[in-house]
């Protein structure tokens, strides 16, 4: 288990840096090309959410192990307004920001484990894990 790295998400350029960092960690974990693409895409959606809806935040990239299996764990946190109705926010097509409403629901489909903790005025933390096959 490595310590992982923390990246700020404060601008559009930071979202690109998060993607690049996740891509190199996904390679290190040994994810297949398709799984690399899925997890980088999910990271892009979640980092953008933290920026657009949370007013910026942090991304944590960590390599985890479960017995012989290696995985990539990503944590996106912001201290924004939070999500009042998490169930609704995870519905395809639901958005408050003029997007397509696929960011959260779509990223959940792209990873193996997905956890969202949020409360109004408490910010949002999304934790996702993708395991090597």
């Amino acid at each position: 288990m490595t310590g992982g790295s923390e990246l700020p998400i404060a601008s559009n350029a930071d979202v690109v840096l998060v993607r690049q960092q996740v891509r190199s960690a996904a390679l290190e974990v040994g994810l297949s090309l398709v799984d690399q693409t899925k997890v980088v895409t999910a990271a892009s959606e979640l980092a953008r959410n933290a920026l657009v809806y949370g007013g910026g935040g942090m991304a944590r990239v960590e390599i985890v192990e479960n017995g012989p299996r290696k995985g990539l764990k990503l944590v996106f946190s912001d201290e924004g307004p939070g999500i009042a109705d998490v169930e609704q926010a995870l519905t395809d097509g639901w958005t408050t920001g003029g997007g397509l409403g696929l960011g959260l629901s779509g990223s959940r489909r792209l990873v193996d484990e997905f956890d969202l903790v949020s409360a109004p005025s408490k910010g949002t933390t999304v934790t996702v894990t993708k395991w090597a096959r």
Binding site: V34, Q36, T37, K38, E45, L102, G106, R109, L110
Partner: peptide, 14 residues
Amino acid sequence: MRPAVAITLVELGL
């Protein structure tokens, strides 16, 4: 479009 991108887009819902 790369095959992995096509697979990911469909799963994303686009």
